[in-house]
Computed example of a mutant assay.
Amino acid sequence: MTAVAVGFPALVLFDLDGTLLDSAPDFVATIDRMRAARGAPPITLAELRPHVSRGSRAMLATAFAQLDAERREAMVPEFLELYQQELARHGPVFEGVENLLAAIEDSGSRWGIVTNKPEYLARQLLPLVGWQARCAVLVGGDTLPVRKPDPLPLLHAARQLGLDAPDCAYVGDDARDIEAARAAGMPSITALWGYRLGDDDPATWQADASVDTPQALLDPHLWSRLR
């Protein structure tokens, strides 16, 4: 199979954490530094991993469940500062992602990122994984006044490249990703390899397609069904 034969849309947009990057180990390192400073034992990857796609507050609620929401909220700046120091130090790009991105590029299509991670952190991460010159568009959680599941970040990413929503597709591992894509009128794909809580059922998210691995996104039949 050649990359050109896959039939990618003009722009493939991705969520970041849990879709392109297995960043959970970076967040474990961050949380462990915070817990150590408070005399608490380390957290396990299995404990934290399901909560990563829900953001910093969900991870803090898991790691510091004994604290009330107000005290955890005050810890968010510390969390972000420490996480900035741990960016891409422990968590790899998911297997198959690099081949997928190269195939999109070789086909003449482009790819970008729409994440709820603060934009400054996402931009700092790109050169650490070699994507700074390859990512066509990046929208972070604070780029606009709203973030996913609002559709505006996805629509903004498409418009930045002069495209309409149907000319794009969005791949994400969380219900908010699929909700945002559906509201934007953009074909949606669930990344089943990502981060989910045990009671999450992706079948209820009503994505246009679901895939088990990044390699499955190289299947031309998948893209032909989405057109």
Rank of each mutant, 00 (worst) to 15 (best):
residue 176 R to E: 06
residue 164 D to I: 03
residue 199 D to V: 09
residue 19 T to A: 12
residue 138 L to V: 13
residue 18 G to C: 10
residue 177 D to M: 03
residue 81 E to L: 13
residue 118 P to K: 02
residue 72 R to F: 05
residue 221 H to L: 02
residue 182 R to I: 11
residue 87 L to N: 08
residue 106 D to P: 01
residue 75 M to T: 06
residue 57 R to H: 14
residue 197 L to A: 10
residue 87 L to I: 15
residue 190 T to V: 15
residue 39 G to I: 03
residue 121 L to S: 13
residue 72 R to V: 09
residue 2 T to N: 15
residue 176 R to M: 09
residue 213 T to Y: 00
residue 202 P to N: 12
residue 53 S to E: 10
residue 46 A to E: 15
residue 218 L to D: 03
residue 69 A to I: 06
residue 60 L to Q: 05
residue 218 L to S: 09
residue 216 A to D: 08
residue 147 R to P: 00
residue 206 Q to A: 11
residue 30 T to M: 04
residue 225 R to L: 12
residue 179 E to T: 14
residue 226 L to F: 09
residue 50 P to W: 03
residue 17 D to Y: 07
residue 193 W to H: 03
residue 52 V to T: 03
residue 118 P to Q: 06
residue 53 S to Y: 04
residue 110 R to M: 05
residue 166 P to D: 09
residue 26 D to P: 03
residue 21 L to C: 13
residue 140 G to Q: 14
residue 104 I to L: 07
residue 145 P to T: 14
residue 39 G to P: 01
residue 24 A to N: 09
residue 41 P to C: 12
residue 115 T to Q: 00
residue 37 A to H: 08
residue 5 A to L: 11
residue 149 P to W: 05
residue 76 V to R: 09
residue 75 M to L: 15
residue 106 D to R: 14
residue 89 R to Y: 02
residue 76 V to W: 06
residue 222 L to C: 08
residue 147 R to A: 15
residue 54 R to I: 01
residue 105 E to D: 12
residue 67 L to F: 08
residue 52 V to A: 04
residue 81 E to V: 14
residue 105 E to M: 02
residue 49 R to A: 12
residue 125 L to A: 04
residue 197 L to F: 00
residue 77 P to M: 10
residue 10 A to F: 00
residue 205 W to V: 04
residue 73 E to Y: 05
residue 58 A to N: 03
residue 131 W to D: 04
residue 121 L to I: 14
residue 107 S to H: 06
residue 70 E to P: 00
residue 83 Y to R: 11
residue 208 D to Q: 06
residue 177 D to V: 03
residue 32 D to F: 01
